[in-house]
């Protein structure tokens, strides 16, 4: 635990202002009974934590600690509810379950805060001793999992072995004979003859995706050439492609 003086959190009236104890000292004092909850100066603690909090995580932890101090202080100041008389026992003999739970949680947290301080000392001591630097590739490698013990690199190595063994798949690729030019010519003929065609009727009913793509490109090409225009005569009505090429005016 910290080296702050315990019990120093009780400012005596008329006396010189003692340095404010840290949060950890306050908890130690509360735990040891050397500091009364209503003597804890929460405001001073808040100001202290504002100065020492290095980052958001530190600040969050401090807020939680301070809230626990407030809770403890509130419990001490509020009147204690009278416990119902136990059968054959003395009134109020049972400790408050919430208080016990809070004390337990605080004690557990404090214990791990001490453990963290211990790790900090180990970390600082280790930082003073240098070894041969690890190769860059090794330092970037993800840490192995204690449970899995198989890294991504292992998986890739195993895959490469299977890959070498696997038979390459070959198949004949036939050239698609349908071209945008062919469909443009076909649509041009149909449009000039019929005047307009509903959008969905532009595509053969059994068209595969390749034919759909080619046909749509042909539609765009006709629009670009000014030989057709897309239109929707009425709201929500089906789209139509209308002929606007030669002899369109005479229709």
């Amino acid at each position: 635990m910290g080296s702050d003086d315990r019990g120093g959190g009780v400012p005596e009236k008329g006396a010189c202002q003692a340095p404010e104890p840290g949060l950890e000292s306050v908890w130690s004092g509360l735990d040891a009974g050397t500091l009364a909850p209503d003597d804890v100066r929460v405001e001073a603690l808040v100001g202290q934590q504002r100065e020492v909090a290095a980052d958001l995580e530190d600040a969050t932890a401090a807020v939680v600690q301070l809230s626990r101090v407030l809770e403890a202080k509130a419990r001490a100041l509020l009147p204690t509810p009278v416990a119902p008389e136990a059968e054959g026992g003395e009134p109020g003999a049972e400790p408050d379950a919430d208080d016990a739970d809070l004390a337990e949680r605080v004690a557990a947290y404090q214990a791990f805060a001490e453990a963290a301080a211990l790790l900090r000392s180990y970390e600082e001591s280790r930082a003073l001793r240098f070894g041969r630097p690890q190769p860059e590739s090794k330092t970037r490698r993800p840490a192995p999992s204690p449970a899995g013990a198989v890294s991504l690199e292992d998986l890739l190595t195993a895959l490469s072995q299977v890959w070498e063994r696997a038979r390459p798949r070959t198949r004949d690729v036939t050239r698609e004979r349908l071209t945008v030019g062919q469909v443009v010519a076909r649509l041009r003929t149909r449009l000039s003859r019929l005047g307009s065609i509903e959008f969905e009727e532009l595509f053969p009913s059994d068209a595969d995706r390749f034919e759909v793509v080619v046909t749509f490109l042909a539609v765009l090409e006709l629009v670009r050439l000014g030989e057709a225009r897309a239109q929707q005569p009425h709201p929500f009505q089906a789209l139509r492609l209308a002929w606007s090429g030669p002899e369109a005016e005479s229709r």
Binding site: D58, F112, L119
Partner: peptide, 18 residues
């Protein structure tokens, strides 16, 4: 080698370690 761990990270590490 690396920057020291933050207080929050050290607390978390202590819990995992123990």
């Amino acid at each position: 080698r690396s920057a020291p761990l933050s207080k929050a990270a050290l607390e978390t590490l202590a819990i995992v370690a123990f």
